[in-house]
Nucleic acid binder design. Structure first.
Lengths: 194, 194
DNA sequence: GTCTATAACGAGATAGAC
DNA sequence: GTCTATCTCGTTATAGAC
């Protein structure tokens, strides 16, 4: 048994990388297997071997994205920081996506929600639910230490934060640069402080 | 010369009605001329007579939607109401769209922004800019009367409101009912009151 | 002026070669 | 196991009939 010191770029991984960027940039309905195939220099049916349907590809995208995202949240929750700093780092995760000229994967899928197969729908909802739970916990910690002011239920406060960040991100992408997002997130966070 | 007492449902108007619902429900990239044709019982090329390209149809959709929307804003601004009531009515406009199981037309187009032809892009940006201006004026009126608390620049405060409503709407559509939107908008407005 | 027949192309997916 | 050749269908758009 060998141990992989570094993750090898598998073909499936390459496909997911390209597809992820295309979805985050253009949306799930606005890219095709042909786009991925052209970029990787393979034929379309080769992609179908790795992901038999577009739905399967979509599910894999959400799974990988979620795994990565919540691994980052774990790191934030593990570090020795106060709640406001944790929220700030949460906002920074979104901002980094925007700087790459992308939209949150599950955010853009939420916009296309009505057109998604049901397996992808539940995966998208799951992403947001996990975000809510995580953020509500951080807010609760902040309230208990007097560093955050938010009224119960804190799950609703968490949802407001998520909705605002997703919306600000989406509309900022229709403008140039992250300034619009920064202004919104700064005001949003200011409203959470004593 | 005759005067139209009531607007007649023209063929072009019928097409716009169906297309508008499809875009607000599924997005601009996820509907086709075939969908409209089937619903109206005509052939696809018949649609091309009225709107030669999908881009032309998209432009017409934004133009009509904007006209209707800003006419409503004019009414709100004309009525003898205080700023908080005007903001509440502004929120109610969004809520009504959500109750129809739709997304704001320009909101969903913002999500698809990178895939839109440039004529539609500028129309979408224009919609948001006009909204910002209108809402910033209402907020300024409220601040002057001591009914609203928001820090300068009020254009940024207006943007935060718009971003939040659009985001809350988008994510609420991935859940059932308007409760999630209501909770977010209530907290949003509460943050604007003294 | 309004619509039908048809084109030209790209989509996602299958069958089968190696 | 991995990929190429191919299929079928749906897409937007044009040409031309009435």
């Amino acid at each position: 048994m060998t141990i992989q010191a570094q993750p090898i770029a598998t073909r499936a991984g390459e496909i997911l990388d390209v597809a992820e960027r295309l979805v985050q940039t253009r949306g799930f309905n606005a890219f095709s297997y042909a786009d991925i195939a052209a970029e990787l220099g393979v034929t379309k049916p080769a992609l179908h071997y790795h992901f038999r349907t577009k739905e399967a590809l979509g599910e894999a995208l959400i799974a990988r994205y979620s795994e990565r995202f919540f691994r980052e949240l774990d790191q934030i929750a593990t570090a020795d920081e106060a709640a406001p700093a944790r929220v700030a780092r949460y906002v920074e995760l979104y901002r980094a996506v925007l700087l790459a000229n992308r939209m949150c994967l599950c955010g853009i899928l939420a916009a296309e929600y009505q057109t998604l197969p049901s397996s992808m729908r539940s995966a998208v909802r799951g992403f947001f639910e996990r975000n809510e739970t995580w953020l509500a916990n951080v807010l609760r910690q902040g309230v208990e230490h007097g560093e955050v002011t938010a009224s119960e239920p804190l799950e609703d406060a968490a949802r407001l934060v998520i909705d605002t960040l997703e919306g600000a991100m989406m509309i900022a992408r229709a403008h140039d640069g992250p300034e619009r997002f920064d202004s919104a997130s700064t005001r949003l966070i200011a409203g959470l402080l004593p």
